[in-house]
Amino acid sequence: MVMELVCPAGTPAALRAAVEAGAHAVYCGFADETNARNFPGLNFSREEMAEGIAHAHVRGVKVLVAINTFPRAGDEAIWHRAVADASHAGADALILADPGLLAHAADRHPGQRLHLSVQAAAANPDAINLYAEAFGVRRVVLPRVLTVEEIAAINREIDVETEVFVFGGLCVMAEGRCSLSSYATGQSPNMNGVCSPASHVAYSGEAGETVARLGGFTIHRTPKGQPAPYPTLCKGCFTSGEQTGHIFEDPVSLDATRVIPALARAGVSALKIEGRQRSRAYVAEVVRNFRAAVEAVAAGRPLPEAALLGLTEGQAATTGAYAKTWR
């Protein structure tokens, strides 16, 4: 059986590119703080969402709508409206993280399929089973901190589908709980939909170096002309005492192509590509490569050679926690 390929779309053009390139499902969000990629110039109006879903459905592709930030007390109506609008537009599933919003969706939209966002940070069978039993969640997106063996062990103890990230930006934190971005900028992916918001990012050329700052904090210094990462705190290069280095994670991207067969054996149902903030060129190239990979795995053929390194942050890739022990 072919694993479902869940592909990003930050714009209608990227959605069409993903569909053309072979996505089984596309995930996207509304242009507001209800989704965790609330970046300038990105995302869908209500009309664009309805058109995008219709475009995908005609071609046999599902659309999953991410409403995966945590509602502010007193402003729940914004998130409730997003749930209702996505459901009415024909979304094949809603990707939610907040228990209150899950309860609302399960109660008011009982026929709507619900997925648990990675923002819920459900990383063990007890947590996943709770979401399944309490809200009828049908699929959980696992955090990017588990090994393949841990994923297999989880799948043996749950009855819902699992989806894992295989490519793109690598979040190594307890997603939905990380406050690093809030500390530096006052905004976070959890509440505002932005980790390291562009409005707080500044690049400047200083003495032959490109200096990247976030909220006034220097995150990286790279020689001019060298690959320059986006300044996220968890991938920053810091000096402590006499040591200078990447405290949490190097500025690399996830590429789990070579562990797809192991993920299939571990019982994973769907593979997710990160990158709603990326262009339609990125979406088309990555989706085309991964569709070829999942088809090869399903047919028992060797994995095709992929050449996606040029699209990755730091021009370097890792298999992340899937095949890694933590420092």
Binding site: A13, A17, P227, A228, P229, Y230, Q277, R278, S279, R280, A281, Y282, E285, G310, L311, T312, E313, G314, Q315
Partner: peptide, 11 residues
């Protein structure tokens, strides 16, 4: 649409 802006930046 032939190249990704982030990739051009990263490189």
């Amino acid at each position: 649409g032939a190249a990704d802006g982030d990739a051009l930046f990263f490189s």
